[in-house]
Structures are given as structure tokens and as C-alpha cells.
Design a protein around this nucleic acid. Structure first.
Lengths: 337, 337
DNA sequence: TTGTTTTATGCAATCGTTTGCATAAAAAAT
DNA sequence: ATTTTTTATGCAAACGATTGCATAAAACAA
């Protein structure tokens, strides 16, 4: 074992050829005679020649690696996106380097430094909740590295992005809630500087307006973690009249919300409907099961990777910003009427 | 923008020095005068010199990359392990390349090829359920690349591994079930060629034996997916007397099991107790919440990465197989009495 | 002054590929 | 037989960094 991998030079020496000839023979260069070509390729095959990736990358100044930064890895939506990125990257012979910011600005900055140091050809980012400065993103662009945002895009930087149709997704979901008889609908959102949150809020508000329902500020709250649910939801439930629906920023919030509402003595969906966002696997294991908006994370991952790789390879030539939108689908389950 | 990164040669030219001097100055080589050293370092700092990673890797024949193959990415346990691997790798300045086999042998083989082609320094594998041939693993070793298995280890290959204490975890869990009054306990396991399954089964059996309870083959089944739950669990419930506990191979199975049992009219835990394995976040959102065995995936990831990197760097010198065991913890929730 | 040691620097090879250009040999045209 | 064209191959530089060895310049000793 530990037999060192054979190199081009080794083949050249063994066959009494020059490395250049061997190199060309391997890539079917027309100037090489069929005879030599076959000889070289047969030898290479037999000795399991594999080009040295490091040498290749140095020569080509192309790493065939893209970096990905997600807020968290252990997270249904993001891991789904990662799977999509992986699939597309693999198809196009790229490898991916994955970092997670843990929703932390400093880690995000460090991750970007790491990826740049590693020599990635491009970076995909879904920004952390706590990020409000954007120099580190600009740094990527200044280094001549392509940058594509996905889902949690950064409005402060002008670059390609792939987003979910948050507005329409929210609009449809809230519409559905209204049409099934709800009219005091709570929106549990996230930090307002994240477009995913404000866009959904707009969808929510427009759906209400469309049905001439009042917009009440008391029905809107930042509540995107289990902890916040414990704090916010009881407050909502103590209002008179009690809300009759909760539209939540993600499935986890919806699930905890559901628990709390049930243990407060309300029936779901008879008294209160609940709708989540993402359509993760927890929607199937709660009782009642959760209605949710499917974000098609896998598609988003594939699309983001495709866009980035097209930029790298020069296939995507648009000089301005390319913006892709992934459709959503409302998946109705038992937590809504 | 797109200012090409500055190189050693650039610095050399600008300062009228040779590349070798600059290289040495950067690494504080003693043979370089303080004057020159400071001059170079200052210039490098100002012009944000970053060594070219490809050149470095070629020279050093060290990629500082480890490959990871998991059966699935969108999976609580595996994504937790990945997070652990990431943390340790980052700490030691390694990058990770992630592949998923999708529980498919062919993809596993291809993933390994890809990783070898990418020039990784080592590989971490949790094998797919369908893998029964091991040549591709041997191939890794034959190429002189370090290999560490984690969780789903491969008994056919003699190499380092990190596992969870499946036997003890199962033993304690079943013990707990018995001590809380259950004595007709079903074991829903996985494919018997996976040690994680057989080890847990042994723990299950020994716990029963310890309490002089009968081992019944009818209470043991391969049932590790939601689909199989639909098929297997009704069969179990139709037996007389009805089982009074289900010990499941993972939380997903436990959650679907719970649903089915509830809708069959049994009360959980009063009539039937349920215990899962992994302690994923779905344990908190079912009702009742799920008792489960925590596998400490993050720890396992860190430990696996640490072991692999120590092998690569030569820090771990043991000539035989190194085997690490991660402890488990039973987390009691509402689905058991 | 000459010889020896110390100090600081540069040369050139190396890692494994790729590629522009030169060139030898063979084939075709004159 | 000579020139031109074609065909097949090799040389050498390049990618960006590292490192053994040689060496120029300075410092010291005799």
C-alpha cells in the first residue's frame, strides 16, 4: 500500500516520451499520433494514472470548489439547501466547502476569510440574523470571487441572488386561513431587517387588506425561536377577542406554538388554526399535523449552485444582478380548518 | 476590483529581493536580517499578501482537506455529526468536503472516487445501509489515505472507528422501560448487518434477560423507515396480549409509531410506552414528547475529525486500530411512564 | 594584509501539469 | 533532387511557493 500515485512524468519516462506529449495524448490532442495516444492511454489506464489535483489547480488557477455559508447546518431548511447545492455541484464536478455562522456576525466574517484563504472560486451565502455590516461581503467581490446570496439575502450588497417567493407564499397561506374562516390572524415574524420576514409580512398584510380585514399591530410580533414562543404566544392568547390563527415564520415556531395553544386549552384547528413555513419533517409528526408553506429548499440549493457556477465558468454573462425566484406551495394538513 | 492577488514574486520585485528571501522573511527565518524581515512583512501586510493555497498544497503535498461521506445530509443525527466535524476541522485549519451516499452503494463508491480525485488527506465514512461490498473502502487505504468510520462502521475493514455505545444505550433504555412497568417490549431495529442495530438488539435482549423476561422473536422486527412503520406496527398491535412498549431504532420511527398507536386508540404512555434513539428535535414537538437516547452526534463528529486529523498529522501513532466510544444518555420525556 | 568566520542574500531545482513555440522526421509537391 | 507542407514530438517557461546549496559582503582574528 501507500504506493505513490503515478505522475505524467513517470509515464513519460516509462514510455520514453516527453511530459508534454503524454499530457496531450491524454487529452486527445489532434497533433498526437493515434499510435502514441493509444500507447499512453493504455499505460495510464493500466497504472491507474490520476492527474494530481493540486498541480492542476495551480496551473489552471481554478479550484473547482465553491464555498457555502449557512447560519446553521443542523436545520431542516438549510440542510435541504445544502443537499441541493451538493447535487448540482457534483454534477458539474465542483466540490463544496461548508461553513456555518451559527447566526453570528463574527463567525460569518471568519468563515469568509477561511473560504477566501482556501481559494474557492465562488461563495454562496445565506446571511446570519445578526449581520448588519456588509464589508466582509464586499471583500469577496473585491477579491474577484463570485458571490450569490440565497434565501437570507443581503440588501446592502448588489449581487446575484436566489430567493423564495416569500410574498406570494405568505399571501396564499394567509388567504387560505381567511377563506377557511379565520379573521384574527397573528403573524409571528423574524428580525425586520431580513427581507424574508418583511416580504412575508407584506404578503400577510395584503391578504388581510384584500379581504378588508383590519391590520392590527398587536397581532404582529418578532418571534422566531422556541424561547420567544414561550414569551410571545401567551401574551397573544390573553387578548380579547382571542386570535383564531397563527401564521409562523418557520415550522419550529409553529410546532411550539401548537403545543402551547393546546396546553392553554384551545382546540387546533377548531378554535385556532396554525400555519408554518418550510414544510420540514416535523410537520408530519406533530398532532395535529402542521399546515406549512413548502420552500423547496432543494431546488433553491440547485438553482443557487447553478447560478454561481455559471458565473464562474462565464456561462452567465449578464452584467447586472441576476435574481431567481423559487415558487412556494401551501401544503395543507390538519392544523388548519 | 478584481485586483489579482499579490504573489511572493511581486513582493520580491517591488522590494528588489529574491523570492526566496521574501519567503524566508515571511516565516521569520533566522538567516534574514531584521531590517529586511520587517520591510517585507510590512509590505506584505499593506498589500494584503495571502499565500496562494494551490501553490502551497502542491509544494507541501498536503491539501488540509478531509472528505466526509454520510448516508444523508438532511438528517438530524448526521447533520449534527457534520457540525461537530466542521468545528474540529476548522479549529485545526482543515476544510471538509461533504458527500452523501443517499443510502446507495453506487453513490458511495462514486463519492469515494470523487474524494480521492480531489486529493483529500483523509476520509470519514458512515456507511450506507445497502453496502455489502467493501473494496471501495480498501481502495482508500491502498491509496495511502487515512480512513475513519463513524457510527455506521464497516466490520469488514480493519481501520479506526468512532461509535456510540449502542449496547449500553439500548440496555439502559430497555431497563428503564421494564422498571417503569413494561414487560412486553417491541424492538424495532434496522438491517441486521449494521452493528448499530445488532448491538442495540443485544442490549435490549440482555436487559430482558436481566429481568427474566422472555425473549420473543415476534417482538423484534426490522423497521427503520416511516413506510415500514405503517406495515409493521399494526401487525404488532394486533397481537394478544398487546405490547406495552416500543423501543425504536430512531426518533422518526418512534414519532410515526406514536401517531399510529394513538390513532389505534391506545394511550401513550399509559397503555404503551415509546422510546426513540438519537434525541433529535422532533422529540420535543410530538405529543406526548418523546423519550429518547441521546447519541451526542456533535461529540462524535468532533472525536472522529480529531482522530482522523491526528492520523494525518502523525500525532496518533498507534499501529493497530483505534476505537473510540461515545457515551449515550437516556432523556426521559412524556412518552414513557 | 591575509585568512577565517559570520551574516544575509540569491540561484536554481522542485512539486505535477499545461502550452506556445521550435524542430525533426516524414510525406507531398515541385 | 530539392523545396514545401504536414505531422509528431520535445523544449522550456509558467503557475506560486519552498529549500538546499552556493556566494557576496561584512566582521573579526591573526
Amino acid at each position: 500500500m501507500d504506493k505513490r500515485r503515478i505522475t505524467l512524468k513517470d509515464i513519460a519516462k516509462a514510455l520514453n516520451l516527453s511530459p508534454s506529449t503524454v499530457s496531450r495524448a491524454m487529452k486527445n490532442h489532434p497533433a498526437i499520433s493515434l499510435e502514441t495516444r493509444d500507447l499512453v492511454q493504455k499505460y495510464a489506464e493500466e497504472h491507474k494514472y490520476k492527474p494530481n489535483p493540486m498541480a492542476m489547480r495551480l496551473r489552471m488557477n481554478r479550484n473547482n470548489v465553491i464555498g457555502v455559508i449557512v447560519p446553521e447546518i443542523v436545520h431542516y431548511f438549510f440542510s435541504t439547501v445544502l443537499a441541493g447545492i451538493q447535487e448540482e455541484a457534483e454534477r458539474q464536478n465542483y466540490n463544496i466547502l461548508i461553513c456555518h455562522s451559527n447566526e453570528n456576525y463574527d463567525r460569518e466574517v471568519k468563515s469568509i476569510e477561511m473560504l477566501l484563504d482556501a481559494g474557492v472560486d465562488g461563495i454562496l451565502v445565506s446571511q446570519s440574523k445578526s449581520t448588519v455590516k456588509y464589508d466582509h461581503f464586499q471583500e469577496i467581490i473585491d477579491n474577484g470571487i463570485h458571490l450569490v446570496f440565497f434565501d437570507r439575502i443581503c440588501t446592502g450588497i448588489n449581487t446575484d441572488k436566489v430567493v423564495v417567493d416569500d410574498y406570494v407564499g405568505a399571501f396564499h397561506a394567509v388567504n387560505y386561513l381567511i377563506e377557511t374562516g379565520c379573521n384574527r390572524i397573528v403573524f409571528l415574524g423574524a428580525n425586520p431587517h431580513l427581507p424574508i420576514s418583511t416580504n412575508r409580512k407584506m404578503g400577510y398584510e395584503d391578504a388581510l387588506r384584500n379581504h378588508r380585514l383590519p391590520l392590527e399591530n398587536e397581532f404582529i410580533a418578532v418571534c422566531d425561536t422556541p424561547d420567544l414562543v414561550q414569551e410571545v404566544v401567551p401574551r397573544m392568547l390573553s387578548r380579547q377577542p382571542v386570535p383564531d390563527a397563527f401564521f409562523c415564520i418557520n415550522d419550529e415556531v409553529a410546532a411550539y406554538c401548537l403545543q402551547l395553544i393546546k396546553s392553554a386549552g384551545f382546540r387546533v384547528p377548531d378554535d385556532i388554526s396554525i400555519c408554518g413555513f418550510t414544510n420540514s419533517y416535523i410537520t408530519e409528526v406533530t398532532s395535529p399535523t402542521l399546515t406549512s408553506v413548502d420552500q423547496h429548499g432543494f431546488e433553491m440549493g440547485k438553482e443557487s449552485a447553478r447560478l454561481l457556477i455559471n458565473r464562474i465558468s462565464g456561462l452567465e454573462t449578464k452584467s447586472g444582478v441576476v435574481s431567481r425566484v423559487i415558487k412556494t406551495d401551501l401544503v395543507v394538513r390538519e392544523s388548519t380548518r
